[in-house]
Write a protein that binds this DNA or RNA. Structure first.
Lengths: 113, 113
DNA sequence: CATAAGTGTATTATAAATAAGTCATATATA
DNA sequence: TATATATGACTTATTTATAATACACTTATG
């Protein structure tokens, strides 16, 4: 069974999506690429690219990131090489935590951080 | 007609997705939230959250951003309030370009930037 | 030790995203 | 002005993502 869906998105999410779409579009135009060209290079349809540039929340994140990468919009970091470093650092922090957090501790927990 | 699909993703895209997934998972655990709790708050299934944390490229970008927002993983900017500013700035730059770039100029173009 | 809770993984149906195509419109160029 | 090209919007067929559910396994707590 599946709900009728029609999901809700926070303002932050919608703004972020609108922003990334605009950035992709701007970068594409600056590079003199047509929507069709970018779509082909990214490996998907022009239709999808247009939805991405419009900030459609349902687009697959892989497609969005792929388009962004091609036109040179850097995700997260202005500095691409740091991506792997960040990944490793994150992995390190995860390793410090208990192997599996299966249970929520019922002892008093200071939850504010 | 629809292609057999099975899309290809660049290394950069796959790394970025893995990173964002890890960051969400880490932030969630640090906040003592279970996967089920975060999924409910985000408005989708635990199944989807787990795919997101695993870096699945097919997940909808709206769902990923929503989860990230809830656990406090900031996209693009460390500074949330700047999001709207960025949006406006981008819109400003777009306004400077010809209303519609329908044609690729055939005059010599310096394409390197 | 028994119980409760969380995770990881798999399965199945259904809803949604996507590809492909078409058409109207706008714009740059000749 | 005529032509070629790009965009935006829409439609339809199909693929894919998603929700719901279930089960084994692990860990914390009583």
């Amino acid at each position: 069974m599946v709900k009728p869906t029609s999901r809700m998105y926070s303002t932050t999410t919608r703004e972020a999506l609108g922003l990334i779409g605009q950035m992709i579009r701007l970068a594409r135009i600056e590079r003199q690429m047509t929507a069709g060209e970018l779509a082909i290079r990214a490996g998907f349809s022009r239709d999808l690219l247009q939805r991405i540039e419009r900030g459609n929340p349902g687009s697959s994140i892989g497609a969005v990131f792929e388009a962004a990468t091609i036109v040179g919009v850097n995700l997260f970091e202005a500095d691409p090489p740091s991506l792997m470093d960040q990944r490793r650092a994150t992995q390190g922090r995860l390793a410090l935590l208990p192997r599996r957090v299966t249970h929520k501790s019922r002892k008093a927990v200071n939850d504010d951080f």
